[in-house]
Design a protein around this nucleic acid. Sequence first.
DNA 1: AAGTATTTGTCCGTATGTATC
DNA 2: GGATACATACGGACAAATACT
Lengths: 232, 232
Amino acid sequence: MYKPTSRTMLYEEVINQILDLIKKGLWKPGEKIPTEMELAQSFEVSRNSMREALKVLEHLKIIQSKAGKGTYLLENSIQNIQALELASVMREANSLDQLMDTRLIIEPELTYRAAAQASLDELNNLEKLLKDSIEAVATNTYFPSLGFSFHMEIAKISRNTLLYKFLESITLELMAQRKLLVLSHLSKKDLLKEIEEHRFIFEAIKQNNPEEAKKRMYVHIQNAKKFLPVKE
Amino acid sequence: MYKPTSRTMLYEEVINQILDLIKKGLWKPGEKIPTEMELAQSFEVSRNSMREALKVLEHLKIIQSKAGKGTYLLENSIQNIQALELASVMREANSLDQLMDTRLIIEPELTYRAAAQASLDELNNLEKLLKDSIEAVATNTYFPSLGFSFHMEIAKISRNTLLYKFLESITLELMAQRKLLVLSHLSKKDLLKEIEEHRFIFEAIKQNNPEEAKKRMYVHIQNAKKFLPVKE
DNA sequence: AAGTATTTGTCCGTATGTATC
DNA sequence: GGATACATACGGACAAATACT
């Protein structure tokens, strides 16, 4: 027999109940909600515990408290609850499969846009990253984040900050999971092949050829998938 | 002269400082951090304010407190900080332009996958949504979220939960902004045209034609962009 | 204009439960 | 079991900001 990890703490309970109230529409955006004392009484907790819950919701931009006035639901509380749930999905250990499939959908398109609009400065940055990678492999100081930074630089050039941030989250998650993977000890030969593919993509971007750049990125990510553990 | 919007509250200050400590690597994942009392003293705040900050970080899955033991940084605190920043980017009023461009990148691919793997049940659900829309237009009870639900249903069929949630966030943001837009008072003729495009997409999915379904979704979103206010 | 009530911000003290040795 | 360290939770108090009269 084992304990259920410990009973949920009071403030977490309160948070969930309040989120439910908002999602069910009983409390509406912009409205004033009861005072700390009233809430504490109806939830049957102390004012301190109530405040812990309220401060969490305030930090999440769902409510806002003002001294002397009271506490109000923010106008976009619903969207912020949604953003919260997105972060939570992002947190839940995603399957490698789904993470890579998502990259396969996003990155080729970002590469297309990058190739269409890269400035000279941006091209130089990309090229420098390439050179750094080659040098790092030669001196055995290569580490995975170097490869990722090439991908992120392309995403940056695409100038879609939303997808940039989204891809950044995916990348970090992959790097965290990568520790356990074959990927971490690729042979020098495999690394060079990967970098060669990077150069191939870079060339298409440099030549202002979006269609070709997009295709090459697609193939590149497909190839990377081969190094992942097989599904059973 | 004006007030600086009100001085930042203590617990927010503390949160930011702690996040910095983690990002700078002074506190490492898995490590134990000082006790509430010690922290309160070094940040020069009361234990209550300290707890408010800690509870926020705990809810964000960055730290975890255990009675009798102490407070620890979670192993994946870094990724969770990242997920947090994603939520924050999502929250910041995104330009319509970027939101729609992101849909243009994601949705055609999701539609491709939906067409490739939709079950009979899933097809029936989609068809029902279509019929509901047509009826709603006929009886003048159509509202924008009906149109969005068709798109979300397709995303669901794609079975990429990560992109599904991401798209859901985008959709909510768009609906929030839509209130101010021309879109809200489309003519009946325009609405019927939109629904006709939905049917067109649906047919391709039903016929198991991923390439065609993808193309039609792309065109559909492109058309929707025409109703947006022009950039200056 | 002044004073009072309301509400959040902040702090303190204390009792209880839980884990460690 | 007993002692210690720590988080959990409660209640009381006063300050600061705002609203009301």
